[in-house]
């Protein structure tokens, strides 16, 4: 796996977690939300959130549940776990520190 891909994956994971922080969602909703809040800057193929979701689930950062409503297709809904919340917070902080540092360098170097 290339470094670049790793980076992308890590970023996507973070975005997914952030979206789930606002409440449980299914895959389609998560993809839409990411597109919306990034004002269509991050135009990823929507399907690529699925590896991310499965990875996060494997790490127990998110949990999933099949929701069956009468007369509708069953849908898999993801929820941020307690561990996921803590992880997101830690990652957000470190991401902010990192990007701030990069910005400083870009501005002042």
């Amino acid at each position: 796996m290339s470094k670049k891909k790793d980076l992308l994956q890590g970023t996507l994971d973070l975005l997914v977690l952030r979206v789930l922080e606002t409440g449980p969602r299914h895959g389609y909703a998560i993809a839409r939300r990411i597109e919306q809040i990034s004002e269509d800057v991050l135009k990823v193929q929507q399907g690529s959130i699925y590896p991310s979701l499965h990875r996060l689930e494997d790490k127990a950062l998110i949990e999933s549940e099949w929701l069956v409503e009468d007369g509708k297709r069953p849908v898999k809904v993801y929820t941020l776990s307690k561990e996921g919340k803590a992880y997101l917070q830690a990652e957000t902080e470190s991401w902010q520190t990192f990007s701030a540092a990069v910005n400083t360098v870009l501005k002042n170097a």
Partner: peptide
């Protein structure tokens, strides 16, 4: 818009593979 479903499935399975 969704992307290559088959390769994405593969990637998902990889995610379980770390198991």
């Amino acid at each position: 818009r969704f992307g290559g479903a088959e390769s994405l499935k593969e990637e998902c399975r990889d995610a379980w593979g770390t198991r």
